[in-house]
Nucleic acid binder design. Structure first.
Lengths: 153, 153
DNA sequence: CAGTGTGTGTCAGGATATTGACATGAGTCA
DNA sequence: TGACTCATGTCAATATCCTGACACACACTG
């Protein structure tokens, strides 16, 4: 095993740190969700539906940062397990609004607790002020890169 | 039912913001690297080899947050394009240390400039002080979740 | 009313990543 | 020496993702 004698300049890059933190969070969430038989996208889908019931497949996909095709598979898996319901026929347009079942809400409750534990572990060494700043700065970073043209020159 | 049952408002969750920022950065980097015919893992590999020459496939994989198999494919692609070199026989053990070719160094130079532009766009609205804090806090988050059980500083 | 544009769901193809597994080389220790 | 452990490279199979494409439903506009 080689030791990190050279503190690479990579550790000074926000992009690299962002990737590292996201990878670590993803791995930790995956491990925390595994006992519940849930993947991270599945959990994200449940959380999204809990806070905003009636979202369509495409809206869920955007919210979970995956493609519509992937979210379709996720949604089908959750539907087969009876955690979400989708009407067979679209009430308006082509979008079929999904909703949580009582079982889905219960599953989400357990999953949310596990994820919250992971998040608290991640933020353990940060004060409340630091967390707020981190929240604000991350949002600024994300907004600055979103192609929604929030700011024009 | 209290409102503490879930992680909370998605936009108020550090985990969600982290994912959002990482996804936006990944997309922006992908777009910036496309004209150079480089994928993000390929760029990460070049950057790693530039700062720490002689890394093995497994070490590169850990540094780029992918599996050894994925990095093997990445490395093979870079090798076919003459950007990196790998000895046919391992000088010690099974690890074959990779190194950048002059062409690879030149390609990295262009790619690094493109990525730096993206990073600066991402951090445009943050002051130097804020960037330093973000760097520090992200490192703290990543360290808090790294499975290295040993308590490191 | 017909034409256009946007958003949605779905299919097919290919590229990519991951999981699981195995064999090899090196170091450790009885 | 021989057995054990660890790390590495590689293979096979699976799962996931993305790009491109198409058909459908609604809103807008002439």
């Amino acid at each position: 095993m080689s030791q990190e004698e050279t503190v690479g300049e990579l550790e000074q890059s926000v992009g690299y740190l962002l990737k590292r933190a996201a990878a670590a969070l993803r791995a930790a969430m995956d491990a925390a969700l595994r006992p519940l038989e849930l993947t991270v996208p599945q959990y994200a889908c449940l959380e999204l539906l809990s806070q905003r019931p009636g979202l369509s497949n495409a809206e869920l996909a955007r919210g979970a940062f995956v493609t519509r095709q992937s979210m379709n598979g996720v949604l089908r898996g959750l539907q087969d397990r009876g955690l979400v319901t989708r009407p067979e026929t679209a009430p308006h347009g082509r979008a079929r609004p999904s909703e949580l079942t009582p079982g889905g809400r219960q599953q989400l409750h357990a999953a949310s607790a596990a994820v919250r534990t992971v998040e608290q572990q991640m933020l353990a060494s940060l004060s409340s002020t630091q967390r707020g700043r981190l929240l604000h700065d991350l949002a600024a970073c994300a907004d600055a890169l979103t192609p929604t043209a929030a700011t024009r020159d």
